[in-house]
Computed example of a mutant assay.
Amino acid sequence: MTVSSIIGAIIVGAIIGALARLLLPGRQAIGWILTIVVGIVAALIGTAIAQVLGVATTPGIDWIELLMQVVLAIVGVGIVAGIRGRRGATRP
């Protein structure tokens, strides 16, 4: 990976993480930095899955790859928010 592709992955991951947080209903108990990290991880995993399925390199915008990344980010933000929310909860 080149420096420009790493920077691009960070930018795309940040946008995907923010989009996932906006699309996930309710309030998430995680900060923006963790949301961006989840988005970056989801973008990398989504790209890997798209490459395995053969849909990563299509002419124009890779809508299927982008959809996979956003869905993975929504799931990731939901899981992280659930884990962080449970950790702070007190049991009666």
Rank of each mutant, 00 (worst) to 15 (best):
V3W: 06
S4A: 10
S4P: 00
S5H: 09
S5D: 12
I6A: 13
G8A: 09
G8Y: 08
G8N: 07
A9L: 01
I10N: 02
I11T: 12
I11N: 05
I11F: 06
V12D: 08
G13Y: 01
G13E: 01
A14R: 03
A14D: 09
I15S: 09
G17K: 01
G17E: 02
G17W: 01
G17P: 03
G17V: 00
A18M: 08
A18P: 03
L19F: 15
L19C: 08
A20Q: 01
R21N: 12
R21P: 05
R21F: 03
L22G: 09
L23H: 02
L24V: 15
L24F: 14
L24E: 10
P25M: 07
P25F: 03
R27F: 00
R27V: 13
Q28E: 08
Q28G: 07
A29Q: 14
A29H: 12
I30V: 11
I30R: 00
G31F: 03
W32N: 05
I33V: 14
I33D: 07
L34H: 01
L34C: 04
T35F: 05
I36M: 11
I36F: 07
G39Y: 02
G39Q: 08
I40H: 01
I40D: 00
I40V: 14
V41S: 05
A42R: 04
A43C: 01
L44Q: 14
L44E: 13
G46H: 03
T47N: 09
T47Y: 00
A48I: 10
A48L: 13
A48Y: 11
A48H: 09
I49H: 08
I49L: 09
A50R: 05
Q51W: 01
Q51K: 02
Q51G: 00
Q51H: 02
V52F: 09
V52D: 12
G54K: 05
A56T: 06
A56K: 06
A56M: 08
A56N: 10
T57R: 11
T58K: 09
P59W: 06
G60K: 04
G60Y: 03
D62Y: 05
W63N: 12
W63D: 15
I64W: 03
I64H: 06
E65G: 13
E65S: 13
L66S: 15
L67A: 15
M68N: 11
M68Q: 10
M68D: 15
Q69M: 13
Q69E: 00
V70G: 06
V71M: 09
L72E: 10
L72K: 01
L72T: 03
A73T: 10
I74Q: 10
I74G: 12
I74D: 04
V75K: 03
V75G: 09
G76I: 04
G76P: 06
G76E: 06
G76T: 03
V77W: 02
V77N: 03
V77A: 07
V77F: 05
V77H: 05
G78C: 05
I79S: 04
I79L: 11
I79Y: 01
I79E: 02
I79W: 01
V80A: 12
V80L: 06
V80K: 00
A81M: 00
A81S: 14
G82W: 07
I83Q: 11
I83D: 07
I83T: 10
R84N: 10
R84W: 08
R84K: 00
R84Y: 04
G85I: 07
R86N: 11
R86S: 14
R86L: 13
G88V: 00
G88R: 12
G88H: 10
G88T: 13
G88K: 11
A89Q: 12
A89D: 13
T90L: 14
R91D: 15
P92R: 15
